[in-house]
């Protein structure tokens, strides 16, 4: 309710400011002024430098990648790569039927989802616990952020050392009578990956949840206290609705990040990866840089691009980021 009125207020303000400016430049199309001017006179040309960079850095490589996915490009044809034989969709067919791509997609998506499902409550709990001021809160908050600040490579190296057969984790578990088995290979490696991912990424959820909590108006707390709401009801019906936005953003970014995460599995398990953790980025990497099948791996990368575009699209539709920008004008 309050957000709606806020956006409405903003948009009217924006509209009026736009309407005020442009008059002197275009006296000839006065009749259409109110509708058209706000778009026509936006100095879009100022976007050119940025737009040009975007084209060079994002669009051109993307198109090249798509082009490559149609080529039979390997170390034998790399030198004259433009003239590598064009084989249409064969790379896609091979990626989907004759390579472990589908298995890799399944592993990547399921592991990302599991890690997210655990990190979200953890993040909320951490945020709620450090919401009210207490002595040493700043220290606790900084400690919570440590895993997030550490480079992925360092996190993975330290965990790999701890998970080595016969290393600290094994001996700790042995001392309480548990034989944990292998961490870095075999079926358990999948859970190792999830565990390390949770450790490394929960502070991100925590950060966003914290930002959501900060936006809860003081009056709302007061009002709910006046109504006699206990902590759970207050949390469930008053605070959580505020967190919905930041948390769905955390979920989306987290999923994309996990699916694309290369460093963590690469450093933890090495290549060739055990088949239980042969994730999408690892598979693409091995296909490209160990087997030198650049065309095939471009096809794999393209498939994974589509894969991560789906949740992104769903999310953008759901939060209507675009609509929030243009409520007064046209698309």
């Amino acid at each position: 309710m309050s957000t709606d009125s806020l956006t409405a207020g903003k948009s009217t303000r924006r509209k009026s400011s736009r309407a005020a400016k442009p008059d002197p430049q275009s006296p000839d199309n006065a009749p259409r002024r109110r509708k058209g001017l706000s778009e026509r006179n936006r100095p879009l040309w100022m976007l050119i430098p940025g737009g040009l960079l975007m084209v060079i850095i994002i669009v051109v490589p993307l198109l090249l990648g798509i082009f490559m996915s149609g080529l039979d490009l390997d170390q034998y044809s790399l030198r004259q790569w433009v003239s590598a034989p064009f084989i249409g969709v064969q790379n896609f067919v091979e990626a989907l039927t004759a390579s472990p791509l589908l298995h890799a997609i399944w592993l990547s998506v399921s592991y990302s989802l599991l890690a997210m499902v655990v990190t979200i409550p953890l993040g909320i709990a951490g945020a709620v616990a450090t919401q009210n001021a207490f002595k040493g809160r700043a220290v606790i908050r900084s400690i919570f952020l440590v895993p997030y600040v550490l480079p992925s490579f360092v996190v993975a190296t330290v965990w790999r050392t701890m998970f080595q057969p016969g290393s600290v984790i094994d001996s700790a578990l042995h001392s309480v009578g548990i034989d944990p088995g292998l961490w870095l290979n075999g079926p358990q490696s999948y859970w190792t990956l999830i565990l390390v991912q949770i450790w490394a990424s929960w502070p991100f959820v925590y950060l966003l949840a914290l930002s959501g909590l900060q936006s809860v108006d003081h009056e709302v707390h007061e009002a709910s206290a006046l109504d006699g709401a206990l902590w759970w009801n207050k949390l469930r019906y008053v605070v959580f609705p505020y967190l919905k936005g930041p948390l769905s953003l955390a979920f989306l970014i987290g999923m994309l990040h996990h699916i694309n995460n290369f460093t963590l599995p690469f450093v933890l398990f090495g290549v060739p990866a055990p088949s239980d953790v042969e994730l999408l980025p690892i598979l693409t990497y091995v296909t490209s840089f160990q087997s030198f099948r650049f065309g095939l791996s471009a096809a794999m990368a393209f498939i994974s691009l589509i894969l991560i575009a789906i949740p992104l699209f769903v999310y953008l539709r759901a939060v209507k980021l675009d609509d929030a920008e243009t409520p007064g004008g046209k698309k």
């Binding site: 292998l182 075999g186 060739p272 055990p274 088949s275």
Partner: peptide
């Protein structure tokens, strides 16, 4: 890769 995938059995 044969060795990597055999490590769980080896253990």
């Amino acid at each position: 890769n044969v060795v990597v995938q055999s490590i769980p059995d080896l253990s």
